[in-house]
Simulated assay, not measured.
Amino acid sequence: MTQRIYLDHAATRFPKPAVVLDAMRSYSQTEEAAAGRGAYRRSQEASQFIWRLRREIAEWIDAESEHEISLHSGGTAALNAAILGYLQPGDHVVTTAAEHNSVLRPLHHLAGQGTIQWTVVPVDASGRVEPTELLSAVRSDTRMVAVLHAGNVNGIVQPIREIGTRLREEHRGDHKPAFLCDAAQTFGHLPLSVRQCHIDLLAAPGHKGGCGPLGTGFLYASLNVHAHLRPTLFGGTGNNSESLDMPLEYPIALEAGNMNVPALVGWLAGLQDRRSETPAAEHLEASSARLRGLAQRLYRELHEIPGIRLIGQPEHVQLPVASLCIDGIAAGELAMILDTEFGIEVRSGLHCAALIHAALQSPDDGTLRISCGEETSDEELRRLVDALREITAGD
């Protein structure tokens, strides 16, 4: 059997660290209890695990407090909690054509209902948004500006810090829109300080750079937006059970229902294992350097293969995510050939990003996306390049 080569890390990290699986198995077999649903020791310990995870996440994104972190079933759920919980009828939103459908679809839904208006700012041929153009779209009724940190189609990293700083300087006081950032591709990979970038709301899954299992995610909400976030899911929270009203305190207001404590325990173990005894910021600097080196090699090798067209290459490559096409071979067919004949797993299609492909000039059926992880070896990249050379030579 051909050895498996997994190059779809932008979808989810594989393999998950053994410490994650061991922590989940051990907890499920010996300690499992519903968090916040009992006064007995193990239920209280489950709650303590959750607060430890909040503190850990807060350190990774330079948040002021663990009380700014709510936990969700994924990045999509967290983004929906932010968008649907913050926006009100009559609001205006500014976003970009580079966004994932986890942002575009809820905004499209609200606009289709007549609840909000929205402006989608175009991006250049690499998928990058120009901050001046983005900020010029902000109006007096703009209540949110939503920009992803990095794209999942080609790894383009947006100028988040410049956007957040200028948004704060140019729109002070009550007229400042909330700045929402989707960090699905960068949490746990690249340094990102919510305070330095003046981010009000930031969402990410736990199963990519965070090393957690699927079905985990978080929403950071700065203290200044807590009073404006409304629950979007209603049910038990383990407290104030005599009241039919949802608690309004963040983060519990957005956490109705039982949490997946075994998964959260595994996520906590993964984050702690990644940085061992070093500060999260120090680990992220090392991770960023490793990924940048992988990205540069990936693009350099792909450039040297005749017959391959790279889609939307960033000027400064920071993440090892590349989209490509080969004339005469559909992206889905190319992915199938790599899988069945070479054991290489990559993704094909539009990658849940509806609007960016026009700017990138992708084929109608989308692109073949290669996304490496920090553990991707030189040998795996060599086998990918050899496979693509063989395919293009026989085309």
Rank of each mutant, 00 (worst) to 15 (best):
D8K: 15
A10W: 03
R13Q: 11
L21D: 14
Y27L: 04
A35R: 00
S43V: 03
S43W: 07
S43G: 12
I61E: 02
E64S: 15
I69S: 02
I69L: 04
A77H: 14
A77Y: 13
A81L: 12
I83G: 03
G85L: 10
G85N: 10
P89D: 03
P89N: 07
D91C: 08
V93L: 11
T95W: 02
T96I: 12
A97K: 11
A97E: 10
E99L: 13
L104G: 09
L107M: 07
W118K: 12
W118R: 13
V123T: 15
A125G: 13
S126D: 07
P131W: 08
A137D: 11
V138Y: 01
T142G: 06
V147K: 04
G151T: 06
G151K: 03
I160L: 10
G164Y: 00
T165N: 06
E170D: 12
H171C: 12
R172L: 11
G173K: 01
F179M: 01
F179I: 06
L180F: 04
D200N: 09
A203Y: 05
C211K: 13
L219G: 03
L219Q: 00
L223P: 07
N224I: 10
V225I: 10
T232F: 06
S243F: 10
M246F: 02
M246N: 10
P247V: 13
P251M: 06
G257V: 09
V265W: 00
G270L: 07
Q272K: 14
S276G: 04
P279A: 05
A286F: 10
R290Q: 13
L291Y: 05
R292V: 09
R292W: 06
L294F: 02
A295P: 03
A295R: 00
R297F: 04
H303Q: 13
I305M: 10
G307S: 05
L310F: 00
P314C: 06
A322D: 04
S323G: 15
G328Q: 02
G328Y: 02
A331Y: 01
A331D: 05
E345G: 01
A358H: 13
D365R: 01
C372R: 04
E380A: 14
A387G: 06
I391S: 01
A393M: 12
G394L: 14
